[in-house]
Design a protein around this nucleic acid. Sequence first.
DNA 1: CTTATTCCTACTAAATTCATAGGGAATTAT
DNA 2: ATAATTCCCTATGAATTTAGTAGGAATAAG
Lengths: 134, 134
Amino acid sequence: MIVSAKGRYALRVMIALAAREKSGPVPLKELAAEEEIPHKFLEQIMTELAKAGLVESARGKNGGYLLTRSPEECTAADILRVTETSLAAAECAKDGDCPRAGTCPTLPMWRALDEAVDDCLKKYSLAELTLQRV
Amino acid sequence: MIVSAKGRYALRVMIALAAREKSGPVPLKELAAEEEIPHKFLEQIMTELAKAGLVESARGKNGGYLLTRSPEECTAADILRVTETSLAAAECAKDGDCPRAGTCPTLPMWRALDEAVDDCLKKYSLAELTLQRV
DNA sequence: CTTATTCCTACTAAATTCATAGGGAATTAT
DNA sequence: ATAATTCCCTATGAATTTAGTAGGAATAAG
């Protein structure tokens, strides 16, 4: 039960994008170099973030990635929901996934945990995370 | 980021033990059968729980496992801390694990997340979980 | 036309999780 | 004592997931 490297990379890149908010599209190459993330791996991550609508891409020369929302409006929860296969708790908490669901004594707890995680992560917007940078 | 099968098994077994609190040692064989957990896998899990002091074992005929504390005093957090390699968040939140720790903008968030998870799980004691059983 | 960039699909490698296997050691009912 | 029952220990294997690589096609700027 741990946030994957993919999720951590995604978060770092989004923070980096927030920090350069008004400087036009930032090429993946720069992001990868700055944040020391394998170029091709980051490519996959950016694709997912783009599909989820958290970033916008510009192709061709001078292209790159841009945030679609202001840093205040994009939270860690938004980002991690995209990259993590499941954001929290147990697989079973998903509807109709477990044969025991009807009588399982732990199901309510997993649901509560899901919520606790989500609530916590919602509190961290990119704006806030960018400020915490030293 | 998900609770492993091991963790879910551990929790179920502990609930089963809580339900039979006063009937003497419960053999692993029975627990495995009731909860449909592979016998040899459960053996490993019980060993960990025993080492952590959450259960006590009695060897030989009529042996088995017993809770060491009352169900009120044993929480899901206690159990999952034993079985999950890391209970929450990111590897980096552990002290001195990440070279970026000094300047990492996400570290405080991971710490907060760890705490949120722990707080949530502490609220579920075996006593409570047993009640929720249908 | 050349260069820099994203986009797409597939593959590979490493790590982790989930078991399985077999025999040994302790305990106890009989 | 003996036999049955049970936990204990260590090693190995299979399956799944995560992390990372690779190559080339599409797009846009200058």
